[in-house]
Simulated assay, not measured.
Amino acid sequence: MTLPMKLVECVRNLFDTLLYFAVMAWKENFRNYIRRAGPVGEPRAAMVILGNGPSLGEDLPRLIARGEYLEKDFLAVNFFADDERFAVVRPAYYVLSDPMFFRRSAYRDRVMEFYKTLNERVTWPMNLYVQYYNPEHFDYRAVLPNPLIRIVRFHTQVYRGFPGVERWLFRRGLGSANFGTVVQVGEYVALLLGYRRIELYGVDHTLLEGLTVDDGNRLCRLDRHYYDDGSSTAVPQPIFQKVPPRPYTMAVYLAEVAELFRGHEVLRDFAISLGARIVNRTRGSMIDAYEREPLE
């Protein structure tokens, strides 16, 4: 890199750094809510994060049969509380980051039913991590009065600037792992809580699977989850941004996917700086940032 290019990059990073702190001061704050809340009880040797990918349909029964939920701490995401095995695994940590969980959307009825289920089924201490950014002032405590559920905020402003500043922010809970998937937030939470081994299941990330454009110029893809019955995923379906609900274009979608995979590289480097390991145990996962150790 030539000297002029280095100067341009330095100026850009400086601008991004100043912009980040200005936005944080205006929209959020500089408190480390994750560290303040701390872990639930005494942390075990490893954290298991359960994604929503189709592979979890095979791996979850194996995890339960092996009794790993008795030896490791579990973190669940999104609608896992609707699964009958939720009460078996008893995750001590839960993360919600999709805007549909705190903003008005076409999924509001399903979301409210989920909150009712979560509130009723939790009979053990749990930390629920939610976005600090809440423009519609959604009241989590109103829908989750269960005193065993502790609501913990996490920051969502992504920093783009000097790598050293990024790591400094991450260590203090001021960075954001909100690169596109709730699993990445879960990884960040686990690292801040001090876990040195983090295992990922159900993170297939087959985000380009069945990607097509129909005759109406709508971007479509196969969107599969472990809880699907298979009937709704036979053909690619149009995909939409949830908030606001507008169709994806190919350019916007691919840019988001690229950012998502970049985020895994950022989290890998952050884990290494802490002396921690993120182990991808999802067979066939498209993530290439972490060491792989598929479940036998």
Rank of each mutant, 00 (worst) to 15 (best):
F138K: 06
L144C: 06
A76E: 06
T17W: 05
I272T: 08
D204W: 03
L222S: 11
G216S: 09
S55G: 09
A251D: 12
P125R: 14
S273I: 00
G41K: 12
N119R: 12
Y129K: 10
T156K: 12
L295W: 08
V257G: 07
Y253E: 07
V143I: 08
R31F: 00
T181C: 09
V89A: 06
R171N: 13
Y93F: 06
E259C: 06
R262A: 05
D223A: 08
E136K: 14
M250E: 13
I272R: 15
M112F: 07
R246M: 02
F74Y: 15
Y248M: 05
L56R: 06
M1W: 04
Y115W: 10
H137M: 01
F101A: 04
R262F: 01
E291N: 11
R103N: 03
Y159Q: 10
V266T: 15
R268E: 10
I151T: 14
K242S: 05
R172I: 00
Y159K: 14
R160S: 05
V77C: 13
A92D: 08
V243L: 07
F179W: 13
V11P: 09
M100Y: 04
P135C: 03
F86N: 11
D82L: 13
G202Y: 02
V89I: 14
S273P: 07
D73L: 03
L191P: 05
F21Q: 14
G263R: 06
I64D: 10
N217R: 15
V111M: 10
Q241F: 01
V183F: 04
Y107C: 03
V279P: 08
L63F: 03
L254V: 09
V23D: 13
I64E: 11
P43V: 01
K72T: 00
D214T: 04
K242P: 01
E199V: 08
P247L: 04
E293F: 03
Y20F: 15
S285W: 02
R172S: 05
P4S: 11
T233C: 11
N119C: 05
L191E: 01
Y195W: 09
Y159C: 08
T212S: 12
F102A: 02
D16M: 10
R262G: 00
H225K: 15
G216V: 00
R110E: 04
Q157L: 06
E9I: 01
R150E: 05
R197P: 00
Q131E: 06
K242C: 01
E68T: 07
F21G: 13
F15D: 08
I149H: 13
A177M: 06
V279T: 14
P125C: 07
Q131K: 15
M112G: 04
N78I: 00
F179R: 14
D223M: 07
P238E: 10
F162I: 03
P147E: 07
